[in-house]
Amino acid sequence: MTPILQTEKLSHVYSAGTPFEHRALVDVDLCAYPGEYLGIIGHTGSGKSTLIQHLNGLLKPTSGRVLVEGKDIWASKEATRQARFRVGLVFQYPEYQLFEETVYKDISFGPKNMGLDEAEIDRRVRESAAFVGLPDSVLEQSPFELSGGQKRRVAIAGVIAMEPAVLILDEPTAGLDPVGVEQILSNIHDYHTAKNATIIVVSHSMEEMARTAHRLVVINDGRIPFDGAPREVFAHGEELESMGLGVPRMTRVFHRLKALGAGVDPSVYTVAQAKEAILAALKAKGTSSDEGGAV
């Protein structure tokens, strides 16, 4: 499969040539495939914010290339503009960028900038509002009267309305309570499945990542040390810990359980998997103890 989004030896240096010179990204090669749900993890200052701002052309690489659907996004002015629309970026705390009088107008800001006609804008606004579970009655309200969680969903709808092929979200659940978190995650999931869009989520929460992402990319010091299925990435518990990241709770519990002497595979990372693993271990013990075995 050809990647929909790709970086080739992407490097970015801030304040080059001054004493504050800082190499935020060093030769980063990253691929995202159509329909993939990709998780990016890294602590503050690891370079992940710099990375995602390159993916839709907000930042220009110091060296290296960013390709969207095979085309260099810096090849021409039009290519950069198109990249902004093909790759939607939802920033951290996006509710702070709302500015219009009504929710409807705010969501339509992106589609309008794309130069779409009224009917198409209307369709997109209503559809994206539906994706994030906002009822029609909210559309004519001021976004500033809504609750925190609702505001955030309006902001996400504002990006979804551009119908990007790749939707990137930076910490979309930061600061929300468990109900709010679940709501946002299921909104993203709905867009993902309905449009077969590529989703890239940046998060600190290993547990959340473990539950949602197909593939994880770890970024540390401007490089990508690990890239693979959650199970593979979480196998590097100690290295992740030293990067200030750690592994999901269930993985930790199972490592401990194994150390106690139980015959379990420690590569679980969600509660559901852990439950299955315990039940399987009990079953295996049941059959093996009939044969006189032990744990």
Partner: peptide, 26 residues
């Protein structure tokens, strides 16, 4: 699923211990 485990395991260690007791039991 029909087990009767104590629900007071707040630390990784407590949880692992509870699971270990379950697996060890016959």
């Amino acid at each position: 699923e029909g087990f009767d485990l104590p629900l007071d395991a707040l630390s990784d260690e407590d949880c692992a211990q509870a699971l270990y007791q379950l697996l060890k039991k016959d």
